[in-house]
Design a protein around this nucleic acid. Structure first.
Length: 226
DNA sequence: GCGACAG
DNA sequence: ATCTTGTCGC
């Protein structure tokens, strides 16, 4: 079982780059999943002056986008935030969260990029390969690449390119609202990723999966004022 | 060399 | 990511 141990022992950026170069070739860029019953939102938040990471996986029914199950896990941070190496900071704890789920999600919608990455192996790709699950990357900013202006209606999108290669899409999920950045994570095509993200974002800029996971990763103990 | 830089 | 209330606009 070569996988799971690469992370915690990752000490220097050189070995992290090497692993990404290896994993990038394992990314499956075509649809490789059956009928989807559930879709899970993945998000990691930080607390305590960046000492503690909190990973949340929220499993929603695709039919009504209602939360069917969710888990939140808290662990000490083991890797710093380095642009381009986000996966090494967040994948391990997310794997722990996935392990404690009762439901095996049909697909993961990640908070972060997939192929929109210098080495085409962002968080969503990394998590998809390590977990074996189909995954999509959804980010609020593009990180790298260029794209043409998009129409202002919901569903409008433009390819994001880098060195002539299409690496993702800038997608407008709500009319006249700033676009989000969708990319392949693993076992899905870019077109299917776009369609699915749009389906999961019927009312807000971010998909419901991300919103639910995000909400659960924050002050779960919201004091009710009377 | 300089600036930019997912979460 | 996180620190944080109200507020301008459709």
């Amino acid at each position: 079982m070569p996988h799971k141990h690469h992370f915690n022992q990752m000490k220097n950026p050189e070995s992290a780059f090497a692993l990404q170069e290896k994993l990038r070739h394992q990314v499956i860029r075509e649809d490789d999943f059956g009928p989807l019953e559930t879709v899970a939102g993945v998000d990691v938040g930080f607390e305590d002056k960046d000492q503690i990471a909190c990973a949340v996986v929220a499993v929603l029914r695709l039919s009504d986008l209602k939360v069917q199950e969710s888990v939140a896990i808290r662990l000490p941070v083991t890797f710093p935030y380095v642009p381009g190496l986000l996966a090494f900071r967040e994948v391990p704890i997310v794997m722990e969260a996935l392990a404690s789920l009762k439901t095996r999600p049909g697909l993961l919608i990640c908070d972060g990029n997939g192929t929109i990455h210098p080495r085409r192996c962002g968080f969503a790709c990394h998590l998809g390969i390590v977990s074996g699950l189909p995954s999509i990357g959804v980010a609020k900013t593009p990180f790298i690449g260029e794209f043409q202006p998009l129409a202002d209606d919901r569903g409008a999108w433009q390819p994001i390119t880098d060195g002539g290669e299409v690496i993702g899409a800038a997608l407008r999920t709500q009319t006249k609202v700033k676009p989000i950045f969708v990319s392949i994570g693993h076992r899905i095509s870019l077109q299917s990723a776009i369609d699915l993200v749009l389906q999961c974002a019927p009312a807000y800029r971010l998909p419901e999966t991300t919103r639910q996971a995000d909400q659960l990763s924050k002050g779960n103990a919201q004091p009710v004022i009377l």
